[in-house]
Simulated assay, not measured.
Amino acid sequence: MGMLSWLAEQRIQEAMRSGEFKDLPGSGKPLELEDLSGVPEELRMSFKIMKNAGLLPEEITLRKECVTLEELLAACRNSGDTGSAEQKTLENKLSMKRLRLQELLRQRGLESSSSILEYGDKIRQKLLSEEE
């Protein structure tokens, strides 16, 4: 153990003995840990920073919108309302979102990024497992 680690540990122990850690917010409650195991390691920090800032990358927003549109289309098809004007409108919107997403990924050089592809596969697997 390095000298700084040892010193930090001694100060923590001293603070615990003197009761400085009593009545901290969240005391006695389980920690809320984020599961970032599905995010490639080299992308975790940037995703964490953006999430803490309340920002989502445009490609994530577009993917989310595509999923919503796909669900709406599936609902139209399941209701037997095929060929309706609403279904055509949804199909057009979905096509436009997919094209924008492809263009955005191409511009950013992410369409062939192994990290992004791996992350996308993990998201798909998770979504499919939640549907079952």
Rank of each mutant, 00 (worst) to 15 (best):
R17H: 11
S18M: 14
E20D: 10
E20W: 14
K22G: 04
K22F: 09
D23W: 04
D23I: 02
L24H: 03
L24G: 02
G26A: 09
P30V: 09
E34V: 13
D35T: 05
D35E: 04
V39T: 09
E42Q: 10
E42T: 10
M45F: 13
F47R: 07
F47Q: 03
F47I: 01
K48F: 14
I49K: 08
M50D: 07
M50T: 01
M50Y: 08
K51T: 06
N52Y: 12
N52R: 14
A53N: 03
A53H: 05
P57M: 05
E59M: 13
R63I: 04
K64T: 06
K64D: 07
E65Y: 03
C66W: 03
T68I: 15
T68D: 15
T68M: 15
L69E: 08
E71C: 13
L72Q: 15
L72D: 15
L73K: 06
A75F: 02
C76S: 09
C76V: 07
R77E: 12
N78D: 14
S79M: 10
G80L: 03
G80C: 06
G80W: 03
T82D: 12
G83P: 00
A85W: 05
E86H: 07
Q87R: 12
K88I: 07
T89Y: 06
L90G: 01
L90W: 01
E91F: 04
K93Y: 04
L94W: 02
K97Y: 09
R100H: 11
L101G: 00
E103C: 02
L104I: 04
L104C: 04
Q107K: 13
Q107P: 00
G109I: 04
G109F: 09
L110R: 03
S112H: 13
S113W: 01
S113I: 01
S115W: 05
L117D: 02
L117I: 09
L117A: 02
E118F: 05
